[in-house]
């Protein structure tokens, strides 16, 4: 009946025909509109901005690659880059192995109270970074802090947030406390996805626990490890709020300054938006190169 109706009204028929062509584009339009407005346009505009420098609020001057040249000669940028790399290295060598270890423990048959432990290890990530920084400010206090109360026993009072050499270790340890439990959940999910038959087959072949770990667990976890590695690396390179509050803006002597913190300072405190955009693009290239290299080394691009 409806079919007849459509045949008798050519306009309606044309509309149905047309909308079939348009509809798919309409369905995907929200993503593309949002992407262009909030990602595409800012990306292009920040690239353009990196070639200019602001002259107050209303006008700007074209400086070409001047900002990039300045950046590579800027000692605070290099210090921030070193600090950021230090944090990333600390995250990958300390935080991720701890996360994997916790996941293995919670996946084993011998540990009791798994749900409570899982919640306990995961809970720090629910705390906003600002609060974590405030709490750890007290924990690292030179005289009365929780950490030093222990270290004083060994005869040394460490100025965690007051001596240049200890600032980044303090930030790394805080990062471990906050994020190890979060990464543990990824590893746990990965471990639970490994087929039990593989372990049974390994046992039949006479493999001990360590051999099973090396030859069954780790290879099976490869995609998860790759994911956690890359995400953690990107997160580390974007580090900002934790050291910003913990070290009161990177002090002393920029020992706690990171790339994003330096970007923020230039953009918002010094009103050097062109320079800040330049730092942003350099950071983007660093992240892109490291991520591609990591994924390649971990064999993610290989066909299985």
């Amino acid at each position: 009946m409806n079919y007849n109706l459509m045949r008798t009204k050519p306009t309606t028929y044309r509309f149905w025909n047309q909308q079939q062509k348009i509809a798919p584009y309409l369905f995907i339009a929200p993503f593309y509109i949002l992407f262009v407005v909030f990602m595409g346009y800012p990306l292009v505009s920040s690239l353009v901005m990196s070639l200019y420098e602001m002259r107050g609020f209303q006008s700007r001057i074209f400086v070409g690659v001047g900002n990039f040249i300045d950046l590579f000669k800027d000692p605070i940028f290099w210090k921030s880059l070193r600090n950021t790399a230090y944090f990333a290295a600390g995250t990958l060598t300390l935080q991720l192995p701890i996360a994997l270890l916790l996941a293995i423990l919670l996946n084993s048959k011998f540990v009791r109270g798994k749900n409570i432990l899982r919640l306990a290890f995961f809970a720090p990530v629910l705390v906003a970074g600002v609060f974590v920084a405030i709490i750890f400010n007290l924990v690292y206090d030179q005289r009365a802090g929780l950490v030093n109360q222990e270290f004083i026993l060994f005869g040394k009072e460490i100025g965690w947030l007051n001596e240049e050499n200890y600032v980044m270790p303090a930030v790394i340890l805080t990062g471990v406390w906050q994020w190890a439990g979060f990464n543990m959940i990824y590893f746990l999910a990965g471990l639970q996805g490994i087929r039990q038959e593989l372990y049974e087959a390994a046992a039949v072949d006479g493999a001990n626990w360590w051999q099973a770990f090396l030859h069954v667990t780790l290879p099976s976890l490869r995609p998860v490890i790759a994911f956690v590695f890359v995400v953690s690396m990107i997160g580390s390179l974007q580090l900002f709020d934790l050291p910003y509050i913990l070290t009161n803006g990177g002090e002393p002597a920029d020992a706690g300054s990171t790339i994003v913190m330096y970007l923020y300072k230039n953009g918002f405190q010094f009103m050097r938006l062109g320079y800040a955009a330049t730092i942003g693009w350099v950071l983007f290239f660093i992240i892109a190169v490291i991520s591609i290299v990591q994924l390649k080394l971990l064999g993610i691009f290989r066909d299985e």
Binding site: R55, F57, S59
Partner: peptide
């Protein structure tokens, strides 16, 4: 914080 708001030409201060 006020310093950064004074950058540029004096007539362009917000």
């Amino acid at each position: 914080s006020i310093g950064r708001f004074l950058k540029g030409a004096i007539d362009e201060v917000g």
